[in-house]
Design a protein around this nucleic acid. Structure first.
Lengths: 110, 110
DNA sequence: ATCTTCCGTAAGTTGACACTTACGTAAGTT
DNA sequence: AACTTACGTAAGTGTCAACTTACGGAAGAT
């Protein structure tokens, strides 16, 4: 998950993900969309694969890549926890319950 | 946006965001939660602020930080475009509309 | 078997970045 | 004024990561 977020933080890799989001594409075809060298793209693909964001399938001499939907879903779920404040409140409530304290749960505004 | 994603890719900064998600907190108090030095946290705060992910408010000698909800929302919206394939199709449909004038505005399901 | 295509890996370079210690500054305190 | 608190900023260091060129190996084609 850590790896997935880091992988997404690079603009080239994001563009790669965009390219292979809907269709499989061989490494060479992917590379031809970028100003950098083909090995550079190959390394990016390795990063994305390790992060679980793409799948690799071999077809003859070619290697076909495609966005891994499950990986994206996991990343999405992970990020949801960040902008979902209620989870924090839930956690706080559980901890408060440990001390058997009763608190008024008004909205605080500051 | 680029900056926001990059900022989120660091675990320390993610933890900072978590800390100040619900409440304002002075820089020193934030730093006390981490094993690294206070200046290090100060630099992380600067990165988060530049990325638009936190707000800074000065209160006397203290500087209070808090997660910037708008910034998080923008990041979230940006990421939605990645795992929402239908947007790509919508875009393609709009472009097709430039040449054709046939618009059926039903729900598309795929 | 040779050649070409397709692609990953090795090795080296450069720049970014997370961290450190040292210092500066603004606001409260005595 | 002098001191303390609460910070950011400067400067330097080590590590990582994105890139390059060079090379190797596997799969068709001739």
């Amino acid at each position: 998950m850590e790896a997935a977020l880091k992988a997404m933080s690079d603009p080239t890799r994001r563009e790669i993900l965009r390219l292979v989001q809907n269709e499989e594409m061989p490494a060479g075809a992917i590379a031809s969309n970028f100003p950098v060298s083909r090995p550079a793209i190959s390394q990016h693909l390795a990063v994305l694969k390790t992060a679980g964001l793409i799948d690799e399938r071999r077809s003859g001499a070619k290697r076909l890549y495609r966005t891994r939907v499950a990986g994206m879903a996991e990343l999405k779920a992970f990020l949801e926890m960040f902008w979902d404040v209620r989870l924090e409140r839930l956690k706080a409530a559980v901890e408060a319950e440990n001390e058997k304290e009763e608190t008024s749960d008004d909205d605080e505004q500051n």
